[in-house]
Amino acid sequence: MQRFKLNNLKRIPLFAFFCCTLLTPAIASAMDPADKGKSIAIERKNRDQGWGDSIAEMSMILHNAQGQQSKRLMQLKTLEVKDDGDKGLTIFDQPRDVKGTAFLNFSHAMRPDEQWLYLPALKRVKRISSRNKSGPFMGSEFAYEDLSSFEIEKYTYQYLKDEVVNGQACFVVEQKPTDKYSGYTRLVAWVDQKEYRPQKIEYYDRKGALLKTLTFQKYQQYLDQYWRADLLLMQNHITKKRTELITHSLKFKTGLSEKDFNKATLKRAR
């Protein structure tokens, strides 16, 4: 009995301390975590609007747990679409045996993405099922869904906390995919408070275990406004494989239009 009382007494200041620490941030931003998370996402999206179109030369370097590596080269054309997902066209240059293969993607905010692949050896365009967007892209650690454009409606949001990453003060926001064919149960994104750029994203698999971490490095500003990371590093924690996605050159407002992203003209894409 005596001991019980003593314990209770000891707990009081501890309890008070916990109350304080829990309440402080909540009072500071008197906002529901879901609303705050979503408003961060909206701000992130808003700051990245109006860039029009872009052409990038990229390479992907795959590393396995044994220390071997393999390189893929590609050109990526992107067209911004108002009030819907972007359109993307990826033309492979290396490996040699898939040179000229073109991958066309219409990212959508409210419905599943649409994807086609042009195979030059067959001279045919083939549609790819959208439920399979979570498989690896070119054998890399990136799933297709990791690379498609960021749209507000693809997730539900939950603001978690503030944290410093890469020397930047960040919002930490949890995102849960709304598409049931996503390979993930949730993502945790670190978005810097100054420019609203993602600095780090953690991907959690179907059983809720940490699967991959994506880090964004070498951010550069284009057109005095838009930030793009020259180096994306995806580390798979389970297989110990990792993939680097490097941007060698990037041009905006190159004059691309809808007709450059057409299934019928995919054969002529260069």
Binding site: P120, M138, G183
Partner: peptide
């Protein structure tokens, strides 16, 4: 290219 198409079509 067949293999690439197939790989791109496989799910998680």
């Amino acid at each position: 290219q067949y293999l690439l198409l197939y790989e791109m079509s496989l799910p998680y």
